[in-house]
Write a protein that binds this DNA or RNA. Sequence first.
DNA 1: CCAAAAGTGTTGTGTTTACACCCATGC
DNA 2: GCATGGGTGTAAACACAACACTTTTGG
Lengths: 236, 236
Amino acid sequence: MRKYSKQTRILVAVDCIIFGFDGEKLKILLIKRGFEPEKDKWSVMGGFVQTDESPSQAAARVLKELTGLEDIYMEQTEVFGNVDRDPIERTISVGYYAFIEINKYKTQITDLYHAEWIDIEAIPQLIFDHNEMVNVALNKLRYKAALHPILFELLPNKFTIPQIQTLYEQVYGSELDKRNFSRKLLSTGLLIKLQEKDKLNSKKGAFYYKLNEDSYKDNFEKFLNFIPNPQALLQS
Amino acid sequence: MRKYSKQTRILVAVDCIIFGFDGEKLKILLIKRGFEPEKDKWSVMGGFVQTDESPSQAAARVLKELTGLEDIYMEQTEVFGNVDRDPIERTISVGYYAFIEINKYKTQITDLYHAEWIDIEAIPQLIFDHNEMVNVALNKLRYKAALHPILFELLPNKFTIPQIQTLYEQVYGSELDKRNFSRKLLSTGLLIKLQEKDKLNSKKGAFYYKLNEDSYKDNFEKFLNFIPNPQALLQS
DNA sequence: CCAAAAGTGTTGTGTTTACACCCATGC
DNA sequence: GCATGGGTGTAAACACAACACTTTTGG
């Protein structure tokens, strides 16, 4: 079949901002490149879209290469396509953010990369426009998490209410009232209380909960208003 | 400088779903292609990203070519990148939606295209994955408009409250209570009442309003909850 | 017994919804 | 004078925000 012969073909990449939560801090997985260009500089993990894959398949592949995990929760943020964003050659990159359960993460990547979890409060300078990608991902995640129960993807199967609250507080950088938070969370019907308690983080112990999978699927796209005054906390 | 020599370059396009409101119906601007491939088939307006422009610049250029207008409100929807989406040659397309004031639109395009406003209730079958693009654009627009005052971009400088209400009703395909709608709208402080009345649509006449530009900018990204029970009306 | 974190209830305030009548005008 | 669409008010239900004390238990 005839091609669009006069048009320019462009490199297309994907870049993944991978979030994890260790129970205390929200972190992203960054790599230090072991090769040129930009050797020893920090960046997010990315890769080029291959001929036989869509951008989202490419992002899933990159995530698997870096973390060993599949079926990861992933959202596209936006396309980064400024003409000069990559000094080597013009490249258009599709941004994604992904949530992984941090305990399931095992280093997978060759020693061409050094991968490390970095607190979102302490992101170093990154190559190209990767700092902007991280900011866009954070803003989109804050926006979406204010309305939809996506943050459970960062937690293990069993979690306690104080753990979730800490996670929300990290995401929004502000403290929440535990009475109001717990009431709102439980009123969604998303959680099933378990008998078991987590005794690691307190003497009294906090009950574990798990997700009600049916209710989770049903409510995923609904507006839940998790965050009081979201307008005060969001930039976009 | 060295290039990423082993990687595949891919065609990158933009496709724009252009919305307009004629006072009665929400419409999108479609074109009937006057050339092969897919001659005489309907599609949305698009074009390839050139070497000297970003995808958003390409989208703005395409919008200008089709409508003659610049500085149009535009949002990126998502990337459409399935390997087989374009049968001629692999092409990755960045989707956008745009709002134009329908009265400002003047046909600009060469007679290679026949452009027409089509009611969103009556979208014909489109080429490639353009029907999916339209659906994605509609869902994103509904989502965003439920929380942010973007729909004013579809209206002329002067508009009446019954006009805005009709627009919201078209966007969500459901009727709204005029007392509650008007109260909520006016309580945002976004509108300035003018002395003049629109006497075309009723005998009594409805007062014109204009946007309070300062308040509009300030409130653009805030959550305004224009739509009661948005969860009942949205798919994503 | 005490420190540390978990868990739980109430009240006032503001927002949302549902609902019905009068007004102005052109014909 | 009447049909058409514009404009407004109120009350009940609900959701939200602010706030403090009791419980459990490991040390």
